[in-house]
């Protein structure tokens, strides 16, 4: 069972994504901001993918992404950014900073699952 890290400061979004992924038999770890996420990454070394928001207090998504990509043990982990449609610059910025791709908020559950399947190829929960 692949473990996914969900990073978002909105509890609702977190709950929503977690619900969807759990329903597809992924294991889910949640973090409320970038700093929290980095901590969780060290605590759960088997995290297979990160689904993250950009705008968060404390440490934002891009800063977190930069740190992940510059840390050898973490650099390989696929990161999917979830962003809003009204910030195209942010989307390019996310790709530039190291996201594998982005999804537009609100994400359809089926699309979220299908997208995750494209980055987490082994250990798909099915």
């Amino acid at each position: 069972m692949a473990r996914i890290l969900i990073v978002d400061d909105s509890k609702m979004t977190r709950d929503f994504h977690a619900y969807v992924l759990r329903a597809s038999r992924y294991e889910v770890v949640e973090a409320v901001d970038g700093a929290d996420a980095l901590e969780k990454l060290y605590r759960y070394p088997d995290i297979k993918c990160i689904v993250t928001d950009i705008n968060m207090p404390n440490m934002d998504g891009l800063t977190m992404l930069r740190k992940i990509r510059s840390t050898p043990e973490l650099a390989h982990i696929p990161v999917v950014v979830v962003t809003t449609i009204d910030r195209p610059e942010e989307q390019m910025e996310a790709l530039k900073t190291g996201a594998n791709f982005y999804l537009i908020k609100p994400v359809k559950p089926s699309i979220l699952v299908a997208s995750i399947r494209m980055v987490v190829r082994d250990g798909d929960g099915q």
């Binding site: 791709f101 359809k108 699309i111 299908a114």
Partner: peptide, 12 residues
């Protein structure tokens, strides 16, 4: 859903 997810990434 798979197709849509794929198109999303490909477009990107």
């Amino acid at each position: 859903a798979t197709k849509e997810a794929f198109f999303n990434i490909a477009t990107q």
